[in-house]
Amino acid sequence: MQSFLILIKREFWEHKNTFYPYVIVGLLVLVMLAIFMGGEKATVTVNTGDTANERSVGFLELLELSAVSFGNMSVAESQDKLRFAYIVIAANFAFMLSFVMFFYLLDCLYRDRKDRSILFWKSLPVSDWLTVGIKLFTGLVCVPVVYFLFIVVTQFIFLLGASLAALSYDVSVWSSLWQPSTVVFGIWADIWFYYTVLLLWQLPLYSWVIFVSAFARSVPFVWVIGVPFAVVTTESVFGGNATSSWIWHHVVPQIGKMNLTGVGDIVDRIASLDFLITLVVSGILVSGAVWFRSKADEM
């Protein structure tokens, strides 16, 4: 168990620049706050009850105005607006996460061969299966958990910011912001539900990426994009599209079209031939990554 933890820690030490692009996260948070607190446009319609007027306002003034407008909303309206804000925050981190996962998995079995430290790692009693397994687990589970925590913290910061802004006005912080914020629990559940479904369908994609990471002797990015591109192009020359659409389906799964409303639907999907192929392809690619890792040497 101790060795399991230290192996994951090592991934976070080595790849911390991949995992936390701090500046981007910081900017994102600021932009989030500014956009939502101010509305999407710098020109807003202010309804003060008696008269409606439209004018351009500065950022600080926007903060005031949205705080006031929150005070006038019904609970359902506040919930809608807050849900939108929380989802936008989550979506932004999810978008970043997809890149982080991709580049981490592409780098994880490549970097130590490049910097020769592979001779050190391989001089320790850690099997190649465990090495590859830990890297997959880190990329597909640990990093998403960290990003989920980013989402939660940012949502909380957002709520605190909005509350502070509202404090200066005659608005009930509890009933207009904190109470309707319970919508966030549903969003968290959705995040993990869709992440799990997405992950299952994208397994061949991530397995392919880690395979390239173990196999490429140079330019892994070119390999990871180039090979599927060559397959798709070759196939289209011969007028086919079966492989291409299979690949596309597992890069960008059409989760919306799957009509997944519960666990039962997922079980149905998992019991399909398509999913069996998914598992077999992923299994072959991951075994390939382990095999290349066992042969790997400094470059």
Binding site: Q2, S3, K9, R10, E14, D115, S117, L119, L124, E298
Partner: peptide, 20 residues
């Protein structure tokens, strides 16, 4: 030169302790 350059000395000790 095969020790990973990004690694801290204390982390190297912790790592080897963890796996060996």
């Amino acid at each position: 030169g095969v020790l990973p350059r990004w690694m801290k000395v204390s982390d190297a000790v912790n790592y080897v302790e963890g796996v060996h």
